[in-house]
Design a binder for these strands. Structure first.
Lengths: 248, 248
DNA sequence: CGCAGTCTTGACGGATCTCAATACAGGTGG
DNA sequence: CCACCTGTATTGAGATCCGTCAAGACTGCG
């Protein structure tokens, strides 16, 4: 991943890039102070495993920078990604001692970790964290349900197109650009990770990307750099209602 | 569905069958009083639509009795069930005006509805409802993620076996019987509903049920009445870790 | 009895997976 | 600088699972 900024070091909450979107978004200054006392930063390199399913987990955390994945693996090795963690997303579950999923950094990753016990205590004493966490969890549930439709009913081509739309949207939101400009981004996932996300094999992912390229729906430079010449055309390939709205 | 009890009429919260598991589980007597003032019961027949995706929704609700499904439909008619609503499950999202999914009663159904605006007000003023709703939402998110693994990676046979295990577990919990006894239950879903849940066609569902029957994994009387002679054998067919624990 | 809804079964085709060979890029060491 | 290696991606051939289309069976009901 192209990461021009210097790596984050422990910051004051007031200057935190995810301050207004993370689980702490609604916190009052006094609550923030308490959070500061139980927080610490951890960094991971691309490819590193943050935690294995079944491991004891003494913290919960917010993703500050980078991308991580949440996935489940069956005995025989089949794996399914069940979540994509972007900056401001929350990891872990208050009250749960043991991780339920594998968490893997797909890019270099910085997390703001809170010791679990004190965090749980703060959640009981103050309302704002729990309220925000409820909102975020409801959003994730909606996203999971949208993903169930994709996994259960969409064709391989539609799955790829849907993933590209999601990444394009996320990227646009991050860069604060709007629809009309040309859409260009780098895929943050390997073909294998995309396959795990979409419930496909990596060969099928590769073939469908080639097909979309051949049909002019996308333009590829190298393996990862994507240009979308006509976003509506791509939207039409997702199988979703014509009107999922424009880019954002 | 075989429903021997008389249909529920509006009850006092204190006598409510889902009192200790629903969104109101943690409420103090004073909070319950307030809830009573904003609640009303609604009943639906099997097959009736409770609400269409996109409809305005001025209430949230708990399922008191019966089973409902949450589903999403694509323009061309492909549909995917994204949730199975059992007694004590919560329907709707505080702060959301418009339903995001179709809700359909698969059996006769009774819901305890709360007018949305007053309910939202109560959520802000008192902590217990929000806390309980957060717990329930986190549980649903876990269930959705488990379902993503099923949809993305399991074979048709494994999908059917997994669904049977879920229904058997739910039924055992309801009847309060334990593992060792013979497991017998009625399927609460049509083949088509099962297909929508599992991301299959109804023909494939039918074929796989026949195959499990032929192989002695299940015994069928009529179309809906199922006996599981060897629960561990069925568990082995789900593809999950050998140890998902026994029946409950 | 006939009808509608639900379910089963068969034949066929196609989308996706599996297995395998090859290509490409970046990094390392000679 | 180039050979080599590793991880990632592409492409092909064949197999397989599941979907599609279609016919027919079972059940309950008017």
């Amino acid at each position: 991943m192209v990461l021009t900024e210097p790596p984050l070091t422990q910051t004051d909450c007031a200057e935190c890039p995810i301050r207004h979107r993370a689980v702490c978004a609604r916190c009052e200054p006094t609550e923030l102070e308490q959070l500061e006392s139980m927080k610490y930063y951890r960094s991971f390199e691309a490819g590193q495993t943050v935690i294995w399913s079944g491991d004891r987990m003494d913290f919960v955390a917010s993703v500050v920078e980078g991308i991580a994945t949440l996935s489940q693996t069956m005995e025989d090795g089949r794996t399914q990604m069940v979540g994509l963690l972007l900056p401001s997303d929350f990891v872990g579950r208050p009250g749960r001692e043991v991780a339920a999923y594998d968490v893997i950094a797909t890019t270099s990753l910085t997390m703001c970790c809170f010791r679990r016990k004190p965090f749980e205590g703060l959640m009981i004493k103050t309302p704002h964290i729990g309220q925000r966490l409820l909102e975020m969890t409801l959003d994730e549930l909606d996203a999971a349900r949208e993903w169930m439709l994709l996994l259960g009913r969409k064709t391989a081509r539609e799955k790829i197109a849907s993933l590209l739309v999601i990444i394009a949207r996320r990227d646009a939101a991050l860069k604060q650009v709007n629809t009309t400009t040309r859409i260009v981004f780098d895929l943050p996932l390997t073909r294998e990770a995309m396959a795990d996300y979409l419930g496909l094999t990596l060969e099928t992912v590769s073939r469908q990307i080639s097909a979309l390229k051949r049909d002019g729906v996308i333009v590829l430079e190298g393996k990862r750099h994507v240009t979308i010449p006509d976003f509506d055309r791509l939207l039409g390939e997702t199988g979703d209602d014509a009107d999922g709205g424009p880019l954002i």
